[in-house]
Amino acid sequence: MTTSPTGSPTGSPTGNAAKNSAGNAADQAKDAGRQAQDSDWMDKAARVGLVAYALIYLLVGWLAVQLALGDHEGRPSSTGALRELTQQPFRDALVWAVTVGMVFLVVWKGLEAAVGHRDEQDESKRTRKRVMSAFKAVLYAAVAISGFSVATQSSSSGGGKSSQTTWTATVMNWPGGQLLVGAAGLAIIGYGAYQVWTAWTEKFAEKLDAEGRSGQSGQAYIAFGKAGYTAKGIAIGVVGGLFCYAALTHDAKKSGGLDEALLAVLQQPFGPVLLGLIGVGLACYGLFTLARARHLSK
């Protein structure tokens, strides 16, 4: 009979009981997570979070259009959108409401990553969906952190660019840092391409329930989604391109977030027209997200 490091037999009733107890605790945790995911409160929280996310994209689209028209005051990014809310009546309440909504989305996608997608029979597809849910939870968390920073006035108006540059510069100085930044850029470009593919295959329609896909309103939602996912994919692709350019030139200042990507678009031939179209598309993504909040597919 073998013994454990503590001297107790590994096959003893005590050892088996401990294993069974740990297994039961894990099963109970999974069951609790699944119950939370399937609960009415989680459904309502997800809808509230989607409304908050829609508001972010509506404002980003508006700021992008304003930038295309020559107004350089706002920054077309999630942080810029949150700062725009601080200029409105009830500004503190609005920013906190959006921030709490983003936290709801983090919890929703976190639960999906941990215990969700049980209806998917293919193990590899279920794993991919869980990884994507985890990725989205991280993205939503970044927006929630920005919202908290804006709500507590703990970040300066120009902090987005400097923090992005600092992060990229830090990684660039690691061994193989250029390759890592370049790989990140390629991954971001790939995600942007996936968004465009989602648009033109209309795969996003799966996010709506049957009522949300039917009738004239359903056709409008699909049109919003198609324009929105296309614009979002293009904008994300430009962000990835900036990372790749920063890696090639070993210049962290060449990288940037969504606002820097849209500024790069503005500097191209017919830039104001292109940026205006992308801004309208991002606003359409916000409208589709509002439709999704109302017709959330189970």
Score class of each variant (00 low, 15 high):
residue 31 D to H: 13
residue 51 V to P: 00
residue 266 L to T: 06
residue 136 K to V: 05
residue 175 P to F: 00
residue 145 I to K: 01
residue 94 L to V: 06
residue 275 L to N: 11
residue 90 F to T: 11
residue 138 V to D: 09
residue 8 S to H: 13
residue 116 G to V: 09
residue 42 M to D: 04
residue 279 G to L: 12
residue 15 G to A: 15
residue 32 A to L: 07
residue 113 A to R: 10
residue 194 Y to F: 12
residue 241 G to N: 08
residue 112 E to Q: 08
residue 250 H to Y: 07
residue 54 A to V: 02
residue 109 K to G: 04
residue 137 A to P: 00
residue 171 V to C: 11
residue 80 G to A: 12
residue 102 M to F: 06
residue 237 G to L: 10
residue 212 G to P: 00
residue 281 G to C: 10
residue 88 Q to D: 10
residue 76 P to K: 00
residue 11 G to K: 00
residue 151 A to K: 03
residue 71 D to Y: 11
residue 270 F to T: 02
residue 117 H to M: 06
residue 292 R to E: 14
residue 5 P to E: 11
residue 158 G to F: 07
residue 275 L to Y: 00
residue 261 A to T: 12
residue 200 W to T: 04
residue 224 F to W: 15
residue 1 M to V: 11
residue 57 Y to E: 05
residue 92 D to E: 15
residue 150 V to S: 07
residue 110 G to E: 01
residue 118 R to C: 02
residue 150 V to T: 11
residue 21 S to A: 15
residue 167 W to D: 13
residue 165 T to I: 00
residue 73 E to L: 03
residue 220 A to V: 08
residue 132 M to A: 14
residue 44 K to N: 14
residue 240 G to D: 04
residue 108 W to G: 03
residue 73 E to N: 02
residue 68 A to T: 08
residue 250 H to A: 15
residue 165 T to Y: 09
residue 99 T to V: 01
residue 298 K to E: 11
residue 283 A to S: 06
residue 216 Q to C: 09
residue 274 L to F: 08
residue 58 L to T: 01
residue 264 A to L: 02
residue 76 P to Q: 10
residue 297 S to N: 14
residue 289 T to S: 03
residue 116 G to H: 08
residue 220 A to H: 07
residue 38 D to V: 08
residue 113 A to Y: 10
residue 32 A to R: 13
residue 235 A to N: 01
residue 111 L to G: 04
residue 234 I to S: 00
residue 169 A to Y: 12
residue 273 V to Y: 13
residue 246 A to V: 06
residue 232 K to M: 11
residue 274 L to Q: 12
residue 13 P to R: 12
residue 294 R to Y: 09
residue 64 A to W: 07
residue 134 A to K: 09
residue 16 N to S: 04
residue 5 P to Y: 07
residue 207 K to F: 06
residue 161 K to W: 07
residue 10 T to N: 11
residue 25 A to H: 14
residue 129 K to N: 12
residue 95 V to P: 01
residue 70 G to L: 01
residue 2 T to Q: 09
residue 250 H to F: 07
residue 101 G to V: 10
residue 13 P to Y: 04
residue 257 G to L: 05
residue 279 G to T: 03
residue 252 A to L: 07
residue 179 L to F: 12
residue 224 F to E: 10
residue 214 S to N: 10
residue 199 A to G: 07
residue 34 R to A: 09
residue 47 R to D: 02
residue 140 Y to T: 03
residue 262 L to C: 03
residue 242 L to V: 05
residue 20 N to M: 12
residue 260 E to L: 03
residue 178 Q to E: 13
residue 122 D to R: 08
residue 58 L to P: 02
residue 163 S to I: 03
residue 194 Y to R: 14
residue 66 Q to W: 01
residue 253 K to L: 03
residue 110 G to M: 04
residue 245 Y to V: 12
residue 61 G to C: 09
residue 148 F to T: 13
residue 173 N to I: 00
residue 263 L to H: 13
residue 127 T to S: 09
residue 31 D to Y: 04
residue 22 A to V: 08
residue 112 E to F: 05
residue 5 P to I: 14
residue 188 I to Q: 01
residue 18 A to K: 06
residue 198 T to N: 08
residue 55 L to T: 04
residue 232 K to G: 00
residue 190 G to A: 14
residue 127 T to K: 04
residue 23 G to E: 15
residue 169 A to S: 14
residue 298 K to A: 15
residue 258 L to F: 08
residue 68 A to F: 03
residue 31 D to W: 12
residue 186 L to C: 13
residue 156 S to T: 06
residue 77 S to Q: 02
residue 175 P to L: 09
residue 145 I to Q: 05
residue 59 L to P: 11
residue 175 P to A: 03
residue 80 G to F: 10
residue 286 G to E: 06
residue 159 G to Y: 05
residue 172 M to S: 14
